[in-house]
């Protein structure tokens, strides 16, 4: 037995009690440390996401041709001028791919954000209030979730008509149900904590409790969920666009580009590059989703590891 233990029992002081004080680090130091420990898959994911964001932000500077610029050359093969050839209307596929990054990712991010604003705030409110409103919201969400969301989306699009704005709202509302469930569940775990009760006993208002006590403690799972929801929304919108009821022409979008050029696959025997043309936007979708999933996987591992300490 060591001497330090001895001293402690004889001269007990509250301040001297053994604690695991972690070295304090600034936010930046922490970030660098965390990034250094990231596995290769997470690095791969982050690099890919950064590249996509770069392309999306600077699309007009990067694209050799305009988004809807039509050339008198339909189904042109791959060449120096048309790097990935042209489509049925004679539009440059490579340029549309670049503009597609901006449109497809932009719409998916907007939809996910909207879903989180709706579902997240209602979820926290339901968890705190635990009254009839919670009951009504929860039952309503149960019913909405009883219909597969792609089917529901198809039905709503057939009524309201297929365009980008309707698409964003419909998918956001449908996806908000899942965000609501998760937010409510994690917020419920926090609401039962004694510190929330202590705040209520102190007489704090609902707004303060939500902002100061609950929100900071539910952020990690919500951030991870944002990544997963983004993937889901991104794939749903891609599927709808592919089905022809999502983002409408002439807006360049990866899902519709696959649909527009799908016929070229039959020519694989004669010209493999032509057959690859519809595959490239599909691969672009897959790559981004894989990248986000890798990062989320790492993040989840990281935060759940912290909880075990």
């Amino acid at each position: 037995m060591s001497d330090s233990n001895n001293n402690q029992s004889t001269n007990y002081t509250a301040a001297g009690e053994v604690t695991l004080v972690k070295a304090r680090r600034s936010f930046l130091e922490n970030l660098i440390r965390t990034l250094k420990s990231a596995p290769p898959t997470a690095w791969f994911g982050m690099v890919v996401i950064a590249a996509y964001l770069f392309v999306a932000l600077f699309a007009p500077l990067l694209a050799p041709h305009g988004e809807a610029e039509v050339f008198p050359l339909a189904y042109a093969p791959w060449s120096d001028e048309f790097i990935l050839g042209t489509d049925a209307l004679g539009r440059d596929v490579f340029s549309r791919l670049i503009y597609g990054a901006r449109n497809t990712i932009g719409i998916a991010v907007a939809t996910t954000l909207l879903a989180f604003i709706i579902g997240g705030s209602l979820g926290v409110i339901a968890a705190i209030s635990r009254n009839w409103m919670d009951q009504v919201l929860s039952r309503f969400v149960d019913v909405l979730m009883a219909i597969p969301s792609l089917i529901f989306a198809l039905m709503l699009l057939s009524i309201f008509g297929a365009n980008a704005i309707n698409l964003i709202f419909i998918i956001a509302v449908l996806d908000a149900t899942r965000v609501f469930r998760l937010t409510r569940a994690v917020a419920l775990n926090v609401v039962v904590m004694d510190y929330v009760e202590a705040a209520r006993l102190r007489g704090e208002g609902l707004g303060w409790v939500m902002r100061k006590e609950i929100l900071p403690n539910i952020m990690p799972p919500l951030v991870a969920e944002f990544g997963l929801r983004f993937c889901f929304v991104f794939l749903t919108i891609a599927a709808l666009s592919f089905l022809g009821v999502g983002i409408q022409p002439p807006t360049a979008d990866w899902g519709s580009m696959v649909r527009e050029n799908a016929g070229l696959i039959q020519f694989a025997e004669y010209d493999l590059t032509a057959a690859l043309t519809p595959m490239i936007p599909a691969a672009a979708i897959a790559l981004l989703t894989v990248a986000v999933n890798f990062v989320v996987d790492w993040f989840l591992h990281k935060t759940s590891g912290l909880r075990d300490e």
């Binding site: 904590m193 004694d194 510190y195 202590a198 209520r200 006993l201 102190r202 007489g203 100061k212 006590e213 900071p216 403690n217």
Partner: peptide, 26 residues
């Protein structure tokens, strides 16, 4: 609780069993 005044709330305080969950970790 909701009908009590701030002054009444102030006069009675509470300490919990699990200090871990009684303080906001953030």
């Amino acid at each position: 609780l909701k009908n009590r005044t701030k002054e009444q709330l102030q006069r009675i305080q509470m300490i919990y069993q699990m200090a871990d969950t009684a303080m906001n970790p953030r």
